[in-house]
Amino acid sequence: MYQQSYQPHQQGQAQHQPILTDEDLAYTVLADLKRVVNEYATAATESSCQQVRSLFTNLLNSTLQMQGQLFKTMEQNNMYSTSSPALRQEIDKQLKQNQQTAQKTDQFLQQLSLGGRMQQPYQQAQAPYMNQQQNNPYSPNSQYQQQSGQSGQHHHGPNPYYM
């Protein structure tokens, strides 16, 4: 795990002996980015001025993006070991249980005549699930979002800091 980053400075590339390894340096930044992401989310929820709220929302997105980029870089350089993959049977079990939960909630809503028309995406989503990472099956509310115009717009909206 350490091989890649330790070799270079033993070969005399660095002018001085660094105190922290590359992993430590990157991890320190990554940990703080994660902390700041949380803080921006809290700040946004607690803002009453719309302008301040959208500032925090933009900063949240921008910080999330940096965190993702740094994580990817660390992963590519074997500096970050993600947890082992979830087993198929566990996924099957969780999917089944939670589909049932969602169905029960649908029934509950229908009893109250609040069901509306939803295309039950969790059933269609089974097969192509892996190819649709962008399309979270649980955000089919995009119709509603377009109507209300406010929520969810920051993903597509004009955000100059969102490289």
């Binding site: 590339q13 590359d22 340096l25 930044v29 870089t73 590519q76």
Partner: peptide, 15 residues
């Protein structure tokens, strides 16, 4: 400041 330290002392060019 943390990024400045990383940009200066990391051995990995990507970092």
């Amino acid at each position: 400041k943390q990024n400045a330290v990383m940009a200066e002392s990391a051995t990995n060019m990507q970092l």
